[in-house]
Amino acid sequence: MLLKTTATTIATPPLFSLFKPSFSVSKLPLLKPFNSPCNPTLKPSTLRMSWLNKLGFGARSPSDSPVDSSTSSIAQGPDDDIPAPGQHFAQFGAGCFWGVELAFQRVPGVTKTEVGYTQGYLHNPTYEDICSGTTNHSEVVRVQYDPKECSYDTLLDVFWARHDPTTLNRQGNDVGTQYRSGIYFYTPEQEKAALESKERQQKVLNRKIVTEILPAKKFYRAEEYHQQYLAKGGRFGFRQSTEKGCNDPIRCYG
């Protein structure tokens, strides 16, 4: 392509060569949203997904895969996974699931934790799907625990202490329906304990608790890079202890 001027003729390179990244898009780090220090309302993950979409690398979105009645019924079905023999499941949503998982990992009697998505209408959602705010999924931690060593009430205490249950669809600077507060029970006994615990907690707070208490629905395990994220080093390679009973402060973004 030639650019003509009154003085001379300048050869210009093709437009694409002006934008030739020195990195591979496939090797971009997968990051959890956090607030930009320059704009507290703008999440870097939103920016990243936006320009990746423009380059043709966008992830599947709910509009690309419309929810039909058959897949919606699967997503809204009960969590039919089975815990290890002698173990029980519990499910909690308390904002960004990284820090919440680490808090439960440290509890004596907890034998396994997984982070994932639940309560939504899309079957097999991706992280980008749930961040769209259109699928109704909540970020949750599914806890497997030994009831002989850890009571459900102990888990509830950890849940209340880890987040602010009075902020709707928000924990700190993380905003969106996926960050809502929720207790998702597996048994009538868990439901009763959750309701009683919520009532006790309400008496010590001067704002209304907005925590939802609902039956546990199908659990979709989050992408592998989300699992035990802080224990593996988080964003900056700073590994945080999962030792039982550890009281070290939890740095949510590593």
Rank of each mutant, 00 (worst) to 15 (best):
M1D: 10
I10F: 11
I10M: 08
P13W: 13
P14K: 15
S26G: 09
K27D: 15
L28Y: 12
L31W: 13
K32Q: 10
K32V: 10
P33A: 10
N35C: 08
N35S: 12
P37E: 07
P37T: 04
C38W: 15
L42Y: 09
L47V: 15
N53D: 14
R60I: 06
P62R: 04
V67F: 12
S70M: 07
T71Y: 03
S73H: 04
A75C: 03
D80P: 01
A84Q: 12
P85C: 08
G86I: 07
Q87A: 10
F89M: 05
G93P: 07
A94F: 02
V100Q: 04
G109R: 08
T111Y: 01
T111R: 01
E114K: 10
Q119H: 14
G120P: 05
L122C: 02
P125M: 08
E128Q: 04
T135N: 00
T135Y: 12
S138G: 07
V158I: 15
P165I: 06
T167D: 03
T177A: 00
R180V: 13
S181D: 00
T187W: 11
E196H: 11
E196T: 08
R200E: 14
N206Y: 13
T211E: 06
F219Q: 04
Y220Q: 08
E224I: 15
F236L: 15
R239D: 07
E243D: 14
K244W: 11
G245S: 11
C246Y: 11
D248L: 05
R251E: 08
